[in-house]
């Protein structure tokens, strides 16, 4: 099972919803789903299993894709490094979930946003 090198990720509690922007906070940072379109097919298939099931183990992904674990593992590691997926540990079991996917803010002159408030 691949290990995350970021200890803080592993302590994320199972039930905690993804962090959401507090009122009037700075914009969220993370990846865009559009990166999904640029991924090679094998990696994209992995992200999609996670998208559809929210929180899955390596074994779940392998079963869904009907591929051996050894074949999926390197791709999973790469997706975690890219930030598209996160690892969380619960009851000594490692789960994968989506990384911080965000709808990126639009750039528009401040005065225009002010007018739209």
């Amino acid at each position: 099972m691949p290990e995350s090198d970021d200890a803080s990720l592993q302590s994320t509690p199972f039930t905690e919803p993804p962090t959401q922007p507090a009122e009037a906070s700075s914009p969220p940072v993370g990846q865009s789903l559009s990166e999904l379109l640029d991924l090679p097919e094998g990696l994209r298939a992995i992200v999609q299993v996670v998208l559809r099931h929210q929180q899955v183990t390596l074994a779940d992904i392998a079963a869904q894709l009907q591929q051996p674990i050894a074949q999926i593992s390197p791709g999973l590691d790469q997706l975690v490094r890219q930030g598209l997926l996160h690892q969380v540990t619960l009851d000594n079991q490692c789960y994968y979930q989506l990384g911080s996917l965000i709808r990126k803010p639009r750039n528009l002159a401040d005065q225009i946003w002010e007018q739209l408030k």
């Binding site: 919803p17 993804p18 962090t19 959401q20 922007p21 914009p27 969220p28 993370g30 789903l33 998208l51 929210q54 979930q97 989506l98 911080s100 996917l101 965000i102 709808r103 990126k104 803010p105 639009r106 528009l108 946003w113 739209l116 408030k117």
Partner: peptide, 23 residues
Amino acid sequence: KVGEIARILREGYNVDLLNLGFK
């Protein structure tokens, strides 16, 4: 509401929250 629509465009939001919401 114009302000609500503009805010989504201006600040973005966490897309996984939308995914969780569907579920």
